[in-house]
Simulated assay, not measured.
Amino acid sequence: MGKKKRVRPEPASLGLPCLGVDTHAHLDMGPMAEMLPEVLQRSHSAGVGRVGQVFLGPEAYASKREQFRDFPEVFFLAGIHPHDAQTFTADGIADLSRAMGKDDRLKAWGEIGLDYYYTYSPPEVQKAALRAQLEAVRQLDVPPVIHSRDADEETLAILLDMGFADRPVLWHCFGRDLEFGRRLVGYGWTLSIPGTVSYRKNFPLQEAVRNLPLDRLVLETDAPFLAPEPYRGKPNEPALSVFTAQAVARLREMPVEELWEAMGRNAVRFFGLAPLGSAL
């Protein structure tokens, strides 16, 4: 007998209202870029009212933003990723600064930060790119979205040195424990929770999400990466954020609908989005 095929629930089967927000997705990557209308229709059917599209650099923003012209539910983030830190220039930062001042769909500068896991760019170059972008963020008074991998203490030190305590900061793809999470929210920052919280043995993150203040948490997919259970190992997309919400709701012992709406409101407040449920 052959192996029984696993049947995964459809995201829309949770029946959630269209009051959720996927704060971080790369809709211009992989198959999603070729099937954008279908991807966004699935997300809407699942209850995702807004999606944050992350452009990795000024060139990506300039060349791809028009792909989203007919999808007002998509808001934008743009920044120079630490993997690409060697490409950063003063002109590139100036281009992004001008765009932030003109395009009201650009709600945050990111993802930016440090990544010492891959070190595609040397650490000193990464730090210089991060500081230059944070300086632009301060001048524009927009929130940064922080990528930090195997570099949390150095990332944190730079943010504090540059005066970001008690300023709006979003820590992308939070994956640490309760102690570190409490440090971040103690600075007034917000944590973005990915699908990895649903992984069975991810106990430190689960403890953190169970105990951290709900008003400091938002949801993200980081699509096409990090799909939650029961889609782990498959390409991620915004519709699957409902399963991340389901995992968080179970940890916090609250109805998933209540959790979904609360984290959606948190995202609307952080990014300054149009209220969920309103016309776009």
Results as ranks from 00 to 15, higher is better:
Met1Ile: 04
Val7Tyr: 02
Arg8Ser: 11
Glu10Tyr: 15
Cys18Asn: 01
Met29Cys: 15
Met29Leu: 15
Gly30Met: 09
Met32Asn: 02
Ala33His: 07
Ala33Cys: 10
Glu34Asn: 01
His44Glu: 15
Ala46Leu: 00
Gly47Asn: 07
Gly47Asp: 09
Val48Asn: 11
Arg50Ser: 07
Val54Pro: 13
Phe55Ala: 11
Tyr61Trp: 13
Ser63Cys: 07
Lys64Met: 14
Gln67Phe: 11
Arg69Ala: 09
Pro72Met: 03
Val74Cys: 07
His83Glu: 05
Asp91His: 03
Ile93Pro: 09
Lys107Phe: 03
Ala108Thr: 10
Ile112Ala: 05
Ile112His: 00
Asp115Asn: 08
Ser121Thr: 00
Pro122Glu: 14
Gln126Trp: 06
Ala129Val: 05
Ala129Trp: 10
Leu130Ser: 00
Arg131Asn: 06
Gln139Glu: 14
Val142Gln: 05
Pro143Leu: 08
His147Met: 12
Asp161Val: 15
Phe164Met: 12
Ala165Asp: 11
Cys173Leu: 06
Phe174Gln: 05
Arg176Ser: 14
Glu179Asn: 01
Leu184Gly: 07
Gly186Gln: 08
Gly188Phe: 10
Thr190Lys: 04
Val197Met: 07
Ser198Met: 08
Asn202Gly: 02
Phe203Glu: 15
Gln206Asn: 03
Gln206Tyr: 04
Arg210Ala: 11
Leu214Val: 06
Leu214His: 07
Leu217Thr: 11
Val218Ser: 11
Glu220Ser: 09
Thr221Pro: 13
Leu226Ala: 02
Lys234Glu: 12
Ala239Arg: 00
Leu240Gly: 07
Leu240Pro: 02
Ser241Glu: 05
Val242Asp: 14
Arg250Cys: 13
Arg250Thr: 15
Glu253Arg: 09
Arg265Ala: 14
Arg265Phe: 11
Arg265Asn: 01
Arg269Gly: 03
Pro275Gly: 04
Leu276Thr: 05
Ser278Ala: 06
